[in-house]
Amino acid sequence: MKRSILILFLLFTSVCGSVMMAQSPAYRGFIDTGYSFGIGARSASKWMLSTAHGAEFIPGKLFVGGGVGLGISTESNHEVYNMPVFANARYTFSDLKVAPFVDMKAGYGFLWDKNHPGGNEGGFYFAPTAGISLPVGGDVRVNFGVTYTLQRACYTTKDHGNTHRHTYDDGGFGLLMGVEF
């Protein structure tokens, strides 16, 4: 069993090495902005901004990188800020001018909720997106997509000397627009 795993690992690394030598990964960057409509009792609608940078391993198709974002609630009675730090993978399905893509961000989101001061914690962050990409010139493209954002959140309250942890999802469906370069 160990020998089979070792052989598979060596085969996988040699194939990956061959692909990398045939074409070196090219830098790619993304800047996205959008609006997320909060769903659920504890979710707040947010304006979002994120940037991701990394390498394109299959030219025009597969991007892998990392990034950071900022979400600011737009509801006057629910002041929430979140800052996700994430790994990012994107796959573009065709070489056509209007190219469909899927994008996946996963990581940790830091959270500040003014309604619960002194005990906020972030948690798991996950944001899949599906959309289309349009060329505007050279290597620059404009992206439009539909996304779902999941942000786990916790806060702590104290009641008569007892500490209580509350966990909830602060997420929603959203629309994104961005630029890739």
Rank of each mutant, 00 (worst) to 15 (best):
G138T: 01
G178T: 09
T33P: 02
G66F: 14
G172I: 05
L70M: 12
S4K: 13
F173K: 11
H53F: 02
G118Y: 03
D139Y: 02
F63R: 02
S24W: 08
G109L: 11
L134P: 02
G40M: 00
G119R: 05
Q23T: 14
S43C: 11
I72K: 10
A106N: 04
T13V: 08
G17M: 11
A87C: 01
L49V: 08
N77T: 01
A22P: 06
M1G: 14
R141T: 12
R90K: 09
K114D: 10
V179H: 02
F9I: 14
G174L: 01
F126H: 01
I39L: 15
V98L: 01
G34D: 04
V15E: 09
K97H: 03
S4N: 12
F124A: 09
E79P: 13
T13H: 05
F63M: 07
F12C: 15
K61L: 10
G60R: 09
R90P: 06
T156M: 10
L8E: 15
G107N: 00
V146Q: 09
G161Q: 00
N115W: 07
S76H: 13
M177Q: 06
A26E: 15
L150R: 05
D170G: 05
G109W: 12
S133L: 00
F110I: 15
Y27K: 14
G109A: 14
T33A: 15
T51F: 07
L150G: 11
F86Y: 01
D32T: 02
Y35S: 06
K105C: 13
